[in-house]
């Protein structure tokens, strides 16, 4: 049993060395052999999920370093990392501008989404009037509406914020409304019977119930916030990651395009991850956990 483990480890290291070979065929074939071996060795699905990203980057590195695809079309991951480091003085101001718009826009979108849901909850006619329009906004591609909004509102921060709200408010509204609609009336009855004020019913029942729905809406919307900003920046701005990527694209600096895109993906994931953690924190009581 133990000797088998040793054999496997030696085999893994051996195959890894072969992937570094100058010969393209040896390198690619040993890479896939390595993948098969790893799948056999690593049975833990969580670890495998983590390994998958590293393997993907490594395959990318092999393909582009062997010039299977010209490097001006597909730069190596190591080169992209190099760009991120050497150009950080250019990237950082753009990134800050993008994040600023994203956070302000998303915050306002949450407020707007909740207020819209509250309005729709007040009476049915308001819902009937607002809902179809809200659905229309969601069927309009952001990429089509962004240039119009910029045309109307100029090149400042405002049009970008509007685009972010446009791209993200809907799931928040729908979930908030669902939360308001699914409050258990028995819970309210208990409080009504002891002549609780409306304020108390809201504080103890309606708000805590709806909160977990609002957070779920935020979680669903969160990856789209930064994409909204990016779309707006692509259409016209003076600073931001969208502009950085677009300029890099126009000058065929695909390494910079990749660098910018990867940074955006990372921040998008970060926002979604934080929202997910937030939701789990606020719904832990459902499992009865402390």
């Amino acid at each position: 049993m133990k000797s088998l483990k040793v054999v496997e480890i030696v085999l893994t290291v051996g195959l890894f060395t072969f992937t570094l070979s100058k010969s393209t065929i040896v390198s690619v074939v040993s890479f896939f052999a390595l993948v098969i071996l790893l799948v056999r060795l690593v049975r833990n699905s969580q670890i495998l999920k983590g390994v998958s990203f590293i393997l993907f980057l490594y395959l990318w590195q092999i393909i582009s370093s062997h010039k299977l695809v010209p490097s001006y079309i597909l730069p190596t991951p190591s080169k992209i990392l190099g760009i991120i480091i050497t150009q950080s003085n250019v990237i950082l101001p753009n990134l800050f501008a993008t994040l600023e718009v994203t956070f302000i826009g998303f915050f306002l979108s949450i407020l707007f989404g909740i207020i819209l849901a509250l309005l729709m909850h007040i009476t049915r006619p308001i819902e009937d009037l607002i809902y179809p329009i809200a659905v229309i906004t969601q069927s309009t591609p952001t990429i089509a509406i962004a240039p119009l909004i910029i045309l109307w509102l100029g090149f400042g921060m405002l049009p970008k914020i509007v685009v972010v709200i446009w791209a993200t408010f809907f799931p928040i509204t729908v979930n908030t409304l669902l939360g308001l609609r699914t409050v258990d009336t028995d819970m309210i009855d208990v409080l009504k019977a002891i002549s609780a004020k409306k304020r108390d019913i809201f504080k103890y029942v309606i708000f805590p119930h709806t909160l977990s729905y609002i957070i779920t809406g935020i979680e669903i919307s969160s990856p789209y916030a930064i994409l909204g900003t990016l779309t707006a920046e692509w259409m016209g701005t003076t600073v931001g990651m969208g502009l950085y990527i677009r300029r890099s694209f126009s000058s065929f600096r695909l390494d910079q395009v990749f660098a910018g895109t990867i940074i955006i993906i990372l921040f998008s994931l970060l926002m979604w991850g934080s929202a997910t953690i937030l939701r789990q924190r606020f719904t832990r009581y459902l499992g009865g956990e402390k």
């Binding site: 258990d184 028995d186 819970m187 009855d189 208990v190 009504k192 019977a193 002891i194 103890y204 029942v205 805590p208 119930h209 977990s212 009581y285 459902l286």
Partner: peptide, 12 residues
């Protein structure tokens, strides 16, 4: 008033 399922508030 105690409704059928008791309904404690699950978030507290």
């Amino acid at each position: 008033y105690m409704p059928q399922k008791g309904v404690l508030l699950p978030w507290y």
